[in-house]
Amino acid sequence: MSMNDLSTSKNTTVAVFDFDGTISDRHTFWRYLRFIAKPHVFWPSLLPLGLTITNVVRKKTTLMDGRVAFIERFLGGMPIETEKKYAADFIAGPLKDWIRPEAVRRLKWHQAKGHKTILVSNAPENYLVPWGQSMGFDHICGSRLEVVDQRLTGRIDGKNCVDDEKVRRLREHLGDLNDFFIYAYGDSTGDHALLEVADRPFYKNWYK
């Protein structure tokens, strides 16, 4: 069966995009934390995390565990309404300059074709969802930050949205993936599971 035959044999075409490094031209989350803390506070605040950072570099601590330490350091205890305002300012400010025009053109191509578009990223939903909604994505899922009593706890709610978790979230939303013709766009090892379930995977070549 040819690729064209395969695409017409399935009910719906879906385009799934990673965010950091795929739509954006850089990783955004630590820059979001820097944006919130302000650079003159952010960099000195890393000193207590020195051992964690060293252990991540030496692979004694996973990158995801190291990430949680950053979240706790900079977001733990913050009221959600305060963080929501930071997210809106981040989207309107630096984030808009980090979006690849080629990726936006590809997204709009899918939308013009009537394809269902989904954003699946390890970036937190706090800014990923409002940004994705502004771009017309049909569904958006990312890592979720835990909230208790209207404040961020500094922990992740559930699992980081990376690797197999991206596929699980996709199945949670779509159901049987075999019913869909899937384009997938990613740029890192955290996207490999997603790319493996795609009919048309694009790894670091989403612009072609």
Results as ranks from 00 to 15, higher is better:
M3V: 15
T8D: 08
K10A: 05
K10M: 10
T12L: 14
T13L: 00
A15V: 11
D18P: 04
D18A: 05
D20C: 09
G21R: 10
D25Y: 01
D25L: 09
H27W: 09
Y32G: 06
R34T: 01
H40M: 10
L46H: 08
G50R: 09
M64R: 15
F70H: 08
E72D: 15
L75V: 15
T82Y: 04
T82S: 11
K84L: 10
K84V: 07
F90V: 14
K96Y: 00
R100H: 05
R106I: 11
H110Y: 04
Q111D: 06
T117I: 06
I118Y: 00
N122H: 03
E125L: 08
V129R: 10
G132R: 02
G132F: 02
H139G: 01
I140H: 05
I140W: 02
V147K: 00
D149C: 04
L152N: 05
T153G: 05
R155E: 14
K159M: 13
V162P: 02
D163K: 13
D164G: 05
D164P: 12
D164I: 14
R169V: 12
L174E: 11
F180D: 06
I182S: 03
Y185M: 06
G186C: 02
D187A: 10
D187E: 04
D199C: 03
F202L: 09
Y203N: 04
Y203D: 06
N205Y: 00
Y207P: 00
